[in-house]
C-alpha cells in the first residue's frame, strides 16, 4: 500500500556527474520510496542512463550525495545482491538456452530462485531448452526480466526495456513487472519514451531534461498539483504571482496556461481543467526547450 511515509529506497541530493567538459547530470535531487514503480522520463541525452549508472555504482558521482538501499552504490557483491539492472542491450548468450542461463545464475548468485524463472517461462509458453538466439524479442525480454528477478532484488533498474517490443509483448512484460511489485519488497525505476505504457504501470515519476530533474514525486500528487487554465488573451500577472507558471501558450485571442498551483484558482475568466501525465510531461519539456508542446511530440517515438 502506498504511503508518503514509505522509506526511501533511492535518495540523492544535488547529485552531479561530469565527463570532462560535458555535464551529464546536474544537481539531481531524487527520492523514490519503497514499493514504487517509477517512470524515468526525458528526451535522449537528458541524463537518464547516467542516473541509472550512478544508481548501480557503474559510474561514480562528481558531486552530491547518493544513497541506495541504505548504502553507497558500488560494484561489489554486497551491494549488487540487492539490485537488479537490465540495460538496453539485453545481456543474454545467444547460443545458450534459458535452462543454461538459470544454471549460470545459480552459480553467480548467493540467493537464486530458478524455479520462479521456469514457472514464468512455462506460463508464457517460452521453451527452456531452445537457444536464446532463436527466441523472439519479446521472449528474450521476458527471460531477461525473469532471470533478473530470480536473485530477488529489492531494487530493479530498467533502461528502456520495452522500446523494441510489440504492443502485446510490452503489455506482458509490464504485467510481469507489476506482478513482481505486487508480491512486495520490490521497487522499480523504469526508463522509457512510451508514456501510455508508463501511465498505466507507474505510480512515481522522475522527469529529466537538460541534465536536470524537472519533476520528481508520486504521479497522483503531481497531477493534483497542476492545472491547465484556458481563457481569453488577457493579462495573467495575477495568476503568475499566485501560482508557478510552467508553460504559457498565447494566441491573439486565447491564453492556455499550465500552472503548478499554490491554492485554488479563482479567476472566473479561465476554465480550469485537470492535466494528464502526457500533458504534464510535455509541458515541462516544452518549458525547458522554450518551445510549444506541439513541437515536442517526437518524444513519443523511439530514437
Amino acid at each position: 500500500m502506498m504511503a508518503s511515509s514509505d522509506p526511501a529506497v533511492i535518495q540523492t541530493r544535488r547529485l552531479s556527474k561530469r565527463y570532462r567538459r560535458v555535464t551529464a547530470l546536474s544537481e539531481a535531487t531524487v527520492t523514490v520510496p519503497e514499493g514504487r514503480i517509477s517512470a524515468l522520463i526525458g528526451p535522449n541525452g537528458a541524463g537518464k542512463t547516467t542516473l541509472l549508472r550512478l544508481l548501480t555504482g557503474l559510474a561514480r558521482p562528481t558531486g552530491g550525495d547518493i544513497t541506495v538501499l541504505g548504502g553507497t552504490p558500488r560494484q561489489n557483491a554486497a551491494f549488487l545482491s540487492g539490485v537488479g539492472f537490465l540495460a538496453q542491450e539485453i545481456p543474454l548468450y545467444r547460443h545458450l538456452s534459458a535452462e543454461d542461463h538459470i544454471g549460470i545464475g545459480a552459480h553467480l548468485n548467493a540467493r537464486w530462485d530458478g524455479t520462479s524463472v521456469r514457472r514464468r517461462l512455462e506460463s508464457l509458453d517460452i521453451p527452456v531448452d531452445r537457444q536464446v538466439g532463436r527466441l523472439s524479442g519479446g521472449q528474450r525480454a521476458q527471460l531477461a526480466l525473469a532471470l533478473t528477478l530470480a536473485k530477488r532484488p529489492r531494487l530493479l533498474l530498467l533502461d528502456e526495456p520495452v522500446a523494441a517490443l510489440d504492443p502485446l509483448a510490452r503489455r506482458q512484460f509490464l504485467a510481469h513487472l507489476a506482478e513482481a511489485v505486487a508480491d512486495g519488497g520490490l521497487t522499480v525505476v523504469l526508463s522509457s519514451h512510451l508514456l501510455a505504457d508508463l501511465e498505466r504501470t507507474c505510480d512515481h515519476l522522475i522527469l529529466l531534461a537538460k541534465s536536470r530533474v524537472q519533476l520528481c514525486g508520486d504521479i497522483d500528487t503531481l497531477l493534483a498539483e497542476h492545472q491547465v487554465l484556458v481563457g481569453p488573451a488577457k493579462d495573467t500577472t495575477a495568476i503568475e504571482r499566485d501560482h508557478t507558471l510552467v508553460q504559457a501558450v498565447r494566441t491573439a485571442r486565447q491564453t492556455t496556461l499550465l500552472i503548478r498551483r499554490s491554492g485554488p484558482v479563482i479567476d472566473p475568466a479561465f476554465e480550469v481543467a485537470d492535466v494528464g501525465l502526457e500533458e504534464l510531461v510535455l509541458g515541462y519539456m516544452g518549458q525547458v526547450a522554450g518551445a510549444a508542446p506541439a513541437q515536442l511530440t517526437s518524444i513519443g517515438e523511439d530514437q
Binding site: 514499493g35 506482458q172 505486487a182 498505466r200
Partner: peptide, 17 residues
C-alpha cells in the same frame, strides 16, 4: 491485486486505491 495486475499491467497501488 496480483490477478488484476497480471491481466492489465496497471500499478498494484492503483488496484489497492
Amino acid at each position: 491485486v496480483r490477478e488484476v495486475v497480471a491481466a492489465t499491467a496497471v500499478n498494484p497501488n492503483t488496484v489497492l486505491k
